[in-house]
Every structure is written in C-alpha cells, then in structure tokens.
C-alpha cells in the first residue's frame, strides 16, 4: 500500500479534549499530534475508553456540549492547496466542510439511518445540503452502491429497516463517499457485523480506497483488521498517542510497552493459545491521571523513573515514534515474541 508522503491532508497539532464531569475535568484526549497523508490509512488502536472516538469526533467538531477542545489546530488542506484550521471555521463553513471534505462512518450501523426516510432521500438531502445536483447525486450513489456490491436500485427505494445490518453498513460506506471527501473516518465499521460481512466490507473498502484515493482514519479494537488495512498505526493510551509509525514497525518492532502488551493480548494463529496474555489492571482514571507515564502502574517494564517523569514522544528510525522510557528493553522483547510471526 502506497501513499503520497509529501502531501499532508490533515495535520493535527497538540489537540486536547476535556469533558466536564461532576468530579472534575476528564482528560479524554491530551496533546494528540499526527499527520494524515493523501491516500494514507491510519489505524487508531487501544482499549475501550482510551479516547479514540473522542479524538475523531473532535476532528469533525461533533463532540457533545459538555466537551471542550483546545490546541494548536486541525489543519486541513483542500484539493486546491488552500489550508484552513478546522477549529476556526464558523458554523456555516463547518457545515459545508463536513461530509464534503471529511466524512465519518459511525459505530453501530443499525441505528445510523433515519428509520422514516428512504435511502434515496438520504442521498438527495445530503446532496442538497452541499449544493450538488439531484441527478448527479443519484447517479453517483447508484454507482457507489453497486461498488459496495448492493442491488443499487432496490436499496435506493428501501427504508433502513428493510436492509440487513451488513447492507446498512455498506450503505453508510457508500454514503460517506458520495461527496468525494478527502478524509473518511471509520469508527469500528465492522464490529457490529458477522465475520463474513466484515470480510466483504473490508474488501470493498480496500478496493474503493485504491480507486478513489481518499485517506482513512480507522478506529478498531481488532488488531488483525488494523494490520490488514492500515499504512500507519497509532496506539492510544489514556488519551495520549503513545506510539505511532508504519504498520510493520509498530506491530513487529514495538517500542512502547503498552503496544506490546496489547499485541500479546490478541490471539495469533502462529503462536499457541497459551501465550495469550491479558493486560493486568484497569485503564487509569482520567480525572486524576497517574503521574509520570500513565501506563507505569500496569507495566512490567516500569522503573522508578516511569512513575515520576512523563516520557516524551521520541522519533526513531523508519518514521517510528514512541513515548516510553524503557523502549530499548521493549524492543528486544518485541523482537523475541513478535518476530516469530513476522512475514
């Protein structure tokens, strides 16, 4: 999988999100930075509640009112080279930016479509909101629905309840591409469907991505899916991006203890079941996070330094970044355990 390494579409700089809660402020995302290139697929992995979905909702400014976002900015480059900061858009420009530049396929496809509106009318209203002609939208939707291997004419006439879960997921995928956005965010698009549907959705997604050349931010619990589809992987822990790099670097030469633990907790065909280890302890409290490295309480590599000093995100060879004090020891163990199944 190749992508244009010189053309950055979305550049997130020092983005933080907090939620107001009764006990205090929840640090859901802290100081996240990354670049997304044209045609690149970035997989965000991490435990539930680590801030993946919050980070993505922050990118399209769809967080609930109890959340506040701050940071240097979310810089987006249009196809004509114009650059804007998404955080500074006014309401009208934001509305236009949504879906036509950055679309999102949400978690839970079953309930993502209005039950009283036909798919056709969803297409029309989306087109109308963004100033696209009805006929053009209809034609494009038909083509996309065919590309996601649906009976396009019939689906257009259907209400959501007449479609199965997998069909609805594919409708949403088609719908997200109708305005030709440069960035598509996919929040666990395959968790609610069975394994065969998941397979076909992933195949369709890869095919469309090669054809239409959009960038994807892919959120997943499923590391195998992430490994298959991603160019770049970013690990999130307690609201921070703790490791980021090309997919093979992160998966086979992990430099952060948490990523290594996460990978060892996932079943692999090449390694026996007895090697499966779960990560000890619970995710940390985000209102009063631990000092130093937020993972140190659960980490088997932790030293006295880890409990006191927060490790900076350091760049290593191969465009690999990690924020871990014990990255050397982690890398050695990663080589021993992971490379058994290296390609």
């Amino acid at each position: 999988m190749t992508y244009d390494r010189d053309h950055v579409v979305l550049s997130v700089r020092d983005l933080s999100v907090t939620y107001k809660a009764e006990r205090g402020l929840v640090q859901a995302v802290s100081h996240a930075s990354f670049d997304l290139h044209a045609g690149e697929t970035l997989a965000l992995i991490g435990e539930s509640g680590c801030g993946k979905t919050t980070l993505n909702l922050a990118l399209i400014r769809q967080l609930p009112k109890t959340a506040s976002t701050f940071g240097d900015g979310i810089f987006y480059t249009y196809r004509d080279g114009r650059q804007i900061n998404v955080l500074e858009l006014n309401d009208r420009d934001m509305r236009r930016f949504l879906w036509s530049e950055c679309a999102m396929v949400f978690q839970g496809a079953l309930n993502s479509l209005n039950p009283v509106i036909r798919v056709r009318d969803v297409v029309f209203e989306t087109a109308r909101a963004h100033g696209m002609k009805r006929e053009e939208a209809y034609k494009r939707a038909l083509k996309l629905l065919e590309q996601v291997r649906l009976d396009a004419e019939r689906v257009m006439r259907s209400y959501p309840h007449e479609l199965s879960g997998g069909m609805r997921q594919r409708v949403l995928l088609a719908l997200s591409l109708i305005l030709r956005p440069q960035v598509v965010i996919m929040d666990e698009p395959t968790t609610a469907v069975d394994i065969l549907t998941q397979r076909s959705i992933l195949d369709v997604l890869k095919q469309l991505r090669d054809e239409l050349n959009f960038s994807v931010i892919f959120i997943s619990h499923d590391l195998a899916v992430a490994a298959e589809i991603a160019d770049t992987v970013a690990t999130m822990y307690a609201g921070e991006i703790v490791e980021r790099g090309p997919v093979n670097e992160v998966f086979y030469r992990s430099r952060h203890a948490y990523t290594l633990n996460l990978l060892n907790a996932a079943p692999r065909l090449s390694v026996g079941v007895e090697r499966l280890e779960s990560i000890a302890g619970k995710p940390p409290d985000l209102i009063e996070p631990p000092t130093g490295c937020k993972f140190h309480e659960r980490c088997s590599f932790a030293t006295a330094v880890c409990a006191q000093v927060q490790p900076p995100l350091v760049e290593y060879e191969g465009g690999h970044l990690a924020a871990c004090h014990e990255t050397g020891r982690v890398l050695i163990e990663a080589r021993e355990t992971r490379l058994v199944s290296a390609p």
Binding site: I60, M94, R95, R96, F106, S112, N114, E125, T126
Partner: peptide, 9 residues
C-alpha cells in the same frame, strides 16, 4: 448525530 456530521442544515 450522523445527520449533523453529514452537514445537514
């Protein structure tokens, strides 16, 4: 939520 993300008025 999806409707808002679609940029509908």
């Amino acid at each position: 939520t999806v409707a808002k993300a679609r940029g509908l008025p």
